[in-house]
Design a protein around this nucleic acid. Sequence first.
RNA 1: CGGGCCGUAGUAUACCGGUAGUACGUCUGCUUUGGGAGCAGAUAGACCGAGUUCGAUUCUCGGCGGCCCGACCA
Length: 436
Amino acid sequence: MLQISFCGKLGAGLISPFCDKLSLMLQSKLFTKTLREAPKDEEALNAKLLLRAGFVDKLMAGVYTFLPLGLRVLNKIETVIREEMNAIGGQEVLMPALQPKENWEATGRWNSFEALYKTTSRFGGEYALGPTHEEIIVPLGKKFIFSYKDLPFAAYQIQTKFRDEKRPKGGLLRGREFKMKDLYSFHTDPEDLLKYYAKALAAYKKIFKRLGLKALVVEASGGTFSKYSHEFQVLSPGGEDLIYVCSKCDFAKNKEIVDEAFVRAAEAGKGSCPNCGGKVTAENGIEVGNIFQLNTKYSDPFALKYKDEKGEEKIVYMGCYGIGVSRLLGTIAEIYNDEKGLVWPKPVAPFAVHLLELNGASAKKIYAELTKAGIEVLYDDRKISAGAKLNDSDLLGIPYRIIVSPKTGARVEFKERSKKTAKLVNPKQLVKLVRP
RNA sequence: CGGGCCGUAGUAUACCGGUAGUACGUCUGCUUUGGGAGCAGAUAGACCGAGUUCGAUUCUCGGCGGCCCGACCA
């Protein structure tokens, strides 16, 4: 096990129990291990990096354990998502992953949802493992929605989903078990839904921007949902979707919904944008979010209705809004890296500072100082060679690195892509420098 | 789900129808320490099953598992 003492605030703002007293700070060893080489059967860049750096462990195809480092990043991603969902009135709930067959029969998806995991109780009951939660939230809504006075509202959760994918691939990008944020909104009419949909779309843009990602808003097919749907695509060679992107304006369209003539023109290098005439090229994209105007698709089968001002019974209009949380972890790893390892953007980095003591020096004082100031520090106090520590640190990709050696004192490095700037600082300046 | 490639210590690999070897890791000890240190010792491995064979990790078949391409992706 990689023996690194650590201490820091967890993503949700909780203090790690190891940090309550300074005397206990050095007691905990980080539960992970770095690998010099990536396992040979990994092809996806995000999987190679996250496995090598010890952020995740693979249990089986498409199913991963999040080790402390990976979980910290995941928690930070979730914090950003929660803040933005709360800001548009989303109320957090947690629905069951184990779901009765009846709910899925009501919408016809017990048989039509191919990737639905089905399981049987030893007493004969049949259940689904939730791949999405329309079948749960709509009946739930029936218990609370009676009048126009109860509308609109929106509820979301961040939860582990299960989909029996034919072929998991791309490391964390397509798994059989994954973490997802799903928000559901409820409205009296299509106009109100549309208004909220626009709000949610804006919130999504904010989320991806805060996570350091450039996400394109792409018109999407919506599959079996309504045609009113948008995807959020992050361009990356590791993505499995093909997106036609205009070089001039913000036009972007998924290959799934463009016609053949368009594809041929684009492939011949003669694609032109229907909006501005700019050149259109095909790019690989990772779908990190997808929003839908469901309208009455799910309120109909469950008869989710309300009484309007005149006492007339009306059907509820709905929207649903998904973000692949664990997929985002993979996406960020896929994009933010250099030849030596990961390079986390500050808002999602597992720690703010990687503190290394070299050549028998002690960084205990600096560690205590930073920790007291509330800065998240990963402290490498292993008694090993300098090169091994530096290489591990390059691989982990924590934004700031503080190196303490007997000769040079404390030196701060800031890792940004492949650029590195380093300076010597007075230990007392550290807190100021590192603090966001 | 169709097609392809592949399963040897924790990781990466070698050889072989007849005692499975190397590197890194890990553990012990000593010496080291600004870019994956040295010495000494130790630890740890043939996916499962059947068949062929005197003998199978090696060959054959089946299963299971992994990766890639395609299809699918609510």
